[in-house]
Simulated scan of single mutants.
Amino acid sequence: MPLNRGAIVKVLEIISVEKGLQCTATEAMKGAVTAGACAFGGALLGGPIGMGIGGALGSLYAAVQSKGKFKSVVSVLQEMTPQQLMLLENNFQAIFQDIDATDIAAAATLIMSNGNLQGQVLQQLAHFFKEEMALQLAS
C-alpha cells in the first residue's frame, strides 16, 4: 500500500534528520566569496603566506557572520504553508508511488537502505528547495 500524502512529509523529515541536512538561502555563497576575497587580498599583500593567513581569517569571519543562519530541513518542512506542502507532496508522488511500506518508519528505512532510491529522494528534495523556495541544501 503506497504512503498517503501526509506521510511523505514525515518520511522526508526522518531522512533529513538521518542525513543531517540543513539549508540556507545565500550564506554559503557569501562565506565563499568572503574567504576568497580575503585570501586574494592576503596574497597581494603578503604573497603565499599572506594568502594562507587571509584565507584563514576570511573563513573565520564568514563563519562568525553566518552563525545561526542555517536551518534544519525539518524546521523548514514544519514551517511550510499548506500550499507549499501540497506542492512538495506532488513533486515526490512519483518516487513514493512504488514504495510498498506499512508505515512511515518502514518507508524511511527502505529509502535509506537503497542507495539509488535515497539518491533520487535527496536530489528531488534539493531541486524542490532550490526551485520552489530559493534555498540550498547543505549536509
Rank of each mutant, 00 (worst) to 15 (best):
P2Y: 04
P2N: 09
L3S: 03
A7W: 05
K10M: 03
K10E: 11
L12C: 06
E13V: 01
I14A: 01
V17L: 05
K19T: 03
Q22P: 00
Q22V: 09
C23I: 09
C23R: 07
T26W: 12
A28C: 15
K30W: 15
G31L: 14
G36I: 10
A39W: 08
F40I: 11
G41M: 09
G41T: 11
G42V: 04
I49S: 04
G50C: 01
M51V: 02
G52M: 03
I53E: 03
A56M: 13
L57W: 09
L57R: 10
L57Q: 07
G58I: 08
S59F: 15
L60Y: 14
L60C: 06
L60K: 14
L60H: 11
Y61K: 13
V64R: 15
V64C: 11
G68S: 09
K71M: 07
V76M: 06
V76F: 07
V76Y: 07
V76S: 09
Q83P: 00
Q84R: 07
L87M: 11
L88G: 01
N91T: 12
N91G: 11
Q93C: 05
A94C: 00
F96V: 00
D98C: 00
I99L: 03
D100N: 12
D100F: 05
A101M: 07
I104D: 05
A107I: 07
A108D: 05
L110F: 08
L110K: 14
L110Y: 11
L110Q: 08
M112Q: 07
S113Q: 12
N116K: 10
N116Y: 10
L117F: 03
L117V: 02
Q118T: 07
Q120G: 00
V121Q: 03
V121A: 04
L125E: 05
A126R: 14
A126H: 10
H127P: 00
F128C: 00
F129L: 11
E131C: 02
M133R: 13
M133I: 02
A134N: 12
A138V: 14
A138I: 12
S139I: 10
